[in-house]
Structure formats: structure tokens, C-alpha cells
Amino acid sequence: MPGTALTALAIPPLVDQHCHGIDRRELAAGDFAAYLTESDAPPATGTSFFDTQLGFAVRRWCPPLLGLEPHCTPGHYLERRRALGAAEAARRLLGATGIAEYLVDTGIPGDLTGPRELAAAGGGATWHEVVRLEPLAERAADTADGPGAFLDALATAVTDAARHAVGFKSVAAYRHGLDLPPDRPRPAQVRTAADQWLLTRAPGERLTDPVLLRHLLWSAADTALPLQVHTGFGDPDLTLHRSDPLLLTDFVRAVRPTGATVVLLHCYPYHRGAAYLASVFPHVYADMGLALTHTGARAHAVLAEMLELTPFGKLLFSTDAYGLPELYVVGAELFRRALSRLLGGWVAEGAWSAADAGRVAAMVAADNARRVYRLGRSDSRPYRPGTEPSG
């Protein structure tokens, strides 16, 4: 592929439509490496999480930002990171990502930066909050006196969150699986489920009841804010085959009359199924976050498969970065290079025009997210399905 085809593609500043805060601590080697995997266990004896596509990508793209040669050893990299300090390393790394706006899921506990602090470390980028649904229910349950009070508090929490957030997120894939009945649960069902959960729930216990998870999904849909849904791979807390986005087919069909927009996160290894859903339902969008990061040097192959069927106006960039500023660097770099390689190659072989390649690059990098979440608009509401420009 001619090098000019790659450099001619202009990719604008990115909108990271799904990400998390970074760890403020000075990380030991083991704590750092734990962020390079979805496993919740130490590496197998004699192995390292650095010996993965993600580990190699970190060693390729991050050392030069800290004054080191690409591919330096993990020990050398971590030594330099400690010498700079976590705050300075984050400033250098985030400032080099080219991310202009962050949509931050604030539902993960821990000593993580909030949206404002994350954006400031990134050089003064714009930030927005995405509210995770399940913690809203858990906090309401911690203080509620009976099912009626719980459901009232939960309704108030969703309404209040919708006033400042640009979207909601569900991790029902972790808590139960996506093989939930698709229809809106009846009020009597919801009250019975709430009563049972409150009677048996220990303080701080996570929500796993399928009726209440469905109630949360429908409550979010009623706000008209975009609803992000975790699909595909993640840590061992989920059962992978129950996170296939195709399991949501009946739900996205049922929820369409509400005007809700559903954003399928991550999707891998079911990204072709997610592409299908985005292609046949006007209110469904697909995201590539986490997938490109963990596939590293093969990111272009995964992106190519997503671009087979996903309408170009329905694909959204994200990093799903969590814990390490390095993951923002890798997610953004791999995305830009994969997109340039693919679109530049199609231009070089005459399949696409250069103008179309530039237009699609801008759509996927930023414009689609700005349209879906209505970023910068005073009402902060998404377009209703059917009003999007065709793509």
C-alpha cells in the first residue's frame, strides 16, 4: 500500500464516547500489568500480561511520550514512569491522544479521576458524564424503607441523572446476561421483585434480579438519552456467550417506539452480529472500544470486519480506557492507524474516493458521537430514530 494513501487521510480530534477514569496511585509493576488484561487473576507462572497484543502496543506507542525508545523493556518503562510520577506521566500521555471530548462512565468504584480531572489532564478537553444504571438502584436500596420507597427513589435518581448526563449505561451482561425477556415488566412484577430483593439483600450487594434489570433498561429508555449496553468480552464476572449482542434483538425491536437510541459497546467477538443489528435497526449503533485495544497489531482486521456491514453513520469510536492513561494512547493510536490503513487502502485500489474516505473518517472519529449524544446542544438529547442522516 503506498505510504501517501495513509498520510492523506485526515482524522479530526476524537470523541471518546465510552471511557473511565484513571488510577491516581503510583502503581507497582503488578498493579500496572493487571490493567493490561480482563482477567481477575495473576498471570500464569512464567508469563506476563505484557506479552499480549495490548502489552506490546503499550510498549510501542507509550515510551516515546515519556522520553524512551519504542519497545523498551517493561521494567525500563515502569522505572521511567515512576521517576516522572503518576500525574506527570498522565499529563504527557493523555495530552498526546488527540481526544477532544470524553464521555466518562462514572460507575466504577476506586481511586479514579472524575470526568473533569480526566479532561484537565488531557490538556483541557471537554467532558461529559455517562451514568451507570445498576449503581443507581443499589444506592437507592441502601437507604429505602420498603419497595415503594425504593422504586420512588430509583425513579427520582434516573430523572435527576438524566438532567446532567449525556447517556446511561447498563452492565446487565455482567449481572445476569443479555438473555432477558425483552418486554417492559409490569408494575406488579417490578414491585414484587423489589420486595423480594430488599428482603434478601445484604448491605452493598449488587443487583442481579432480571426483572429489576429490565426495569432499569426501560426506565433509561424513557428518558430519551442514549443507552449504552455492555456486550461481548470483559472480565470473568460475565459468561461470554450470554453477552452476545444478538440476544438483544427482541429488546431493541420492542424499545424502538420509545425513541431510545441503543449503543452496543465493545461487541467482540460478536462484532459482526452487532454490525448486523446496527444495519437493520435505525436506533442501534455499534462501538469498537476495548476490541481494538486488546487486538493490538490486528486491530485493522477487527475494524475491517465491523466496517463490512455497519452503516458508516452508525459506528462510534471509543477507547474504553480504564485505570491507565496508556490505554487512552493505545486506543486512539490503534484506531487512527487501523482506519487510515483500511480507508487509505480502499482509496489506493480505487474502491473509494478520497473525499468519501475523509468524510467517513470524520464520522466515525467524532461526528457520529456528536450527533447521537447531541454534544454541544442545549437540550443534550439525541436525535429520534429515523431523523439521522443516512449513512
Results as ranks from 00 to 15, higher is better:
118 L>F: 04
118 L>P: 00
121 A>N: 09
121 A>Y: 08
122 G>M: 04
123 G>V: 05
124 G>I: 10
124 G>H: 11
124 G>C: 04
125 A>K: 06
126 T>K: 15
128 H>L: 07
128 H>Q: 12
129 E>M: 13
130 V>T: 02
131 V>K: 13
133 L>T: 01
135 P>G: 02
135 P>T: 01
135 P>I: 02
137 A>K: 03
137 A>C: 03
137 A>F: 07
137 A>D: 00
141 A>N: 04
141 A>M: 11
143 T>S: 14
143 T>Y: 14
144 A>D: 07
145 D>A: 14
145 D>I: 07
146 G>V: 02
146 G>L: 11
146 G>C: 09
146 G>H: 06
147 P>C: 05
147 P>H: 05
147 P>F: 03
149 A>F: 11
151 L>E: 05
151 L>H: 05
151 L>W: 05
152 D>I: 12
152 D>V: 11
153 A>G: 10
153 A>L: 11
156 T>W: 13
158 V>D: 00
160 D>M: 09
161 A>T: 09
161 A>N: 12
162 A>Q: 11
164 H>E: 08
166 V>K: 00
166 V>T: 09
173 A>H: 04
173 A>G: 01
175 R>L: 03
177 G>W: 02
177 G>Q: 01
179 D>N: 09
180 L>K: 03
181 P>K: 05
183 D>Q: 14
184 R>T: 12
185 P>Q: 05
186 R>H: 15
186 R>K: 13
187 P>F: 04
188 A>G: 14
189 Q>R: 11
189 Q>S: 13
190 V>F: 06
192 T>C: 15
193 A>N: 05
193 A>V: 12
193 A>R: 06
196 Q>S: 15
196 Q>V: 15
197 W>N: 09
198 L>P: 07
198 L>F: 06
200 T>P: 11
200 T>M: 13
200 T>I: 12
201 R>V: 07
207 L>N: 00
207 L>Y: 00
209 D>C: 01
209 D>T: 02
210 P>C: 00
211 V>L: 02
211 V>A: 01
212 L>N: 00
215 H>G: 04
215 H>R: 08
215 H>Y: 10
215 H>K: 06
216 L>Q: 03
216 L>Y: 02
216 L>P: 00
217 L>R: 01
218 W>Y: 10
219 S>K: 08
225 L>M: 04
225 L>Y: 10
226 P>W: 05
227 L>P: 02
227 L>F: 01
228 Q>P: 08
230 H>E: 11
233 F>N: 11
233 F>S: 08
235 D>W: 06
235 D>I: 07
236 P>Y: 11
238 L>F: 08
239 T>M: 13
239 T>N: 15
241 H>W: 13
242 R>T: 06
242 R>S: 01
242 R>A: 02
242 R>L: 05
244 D>E: 07
244 D>L: 03
246 L>M: 14
247 L>Q: 04
247 L>M: 08
249 T>Q: 13
249 T>G: 14
249 T>N: 15
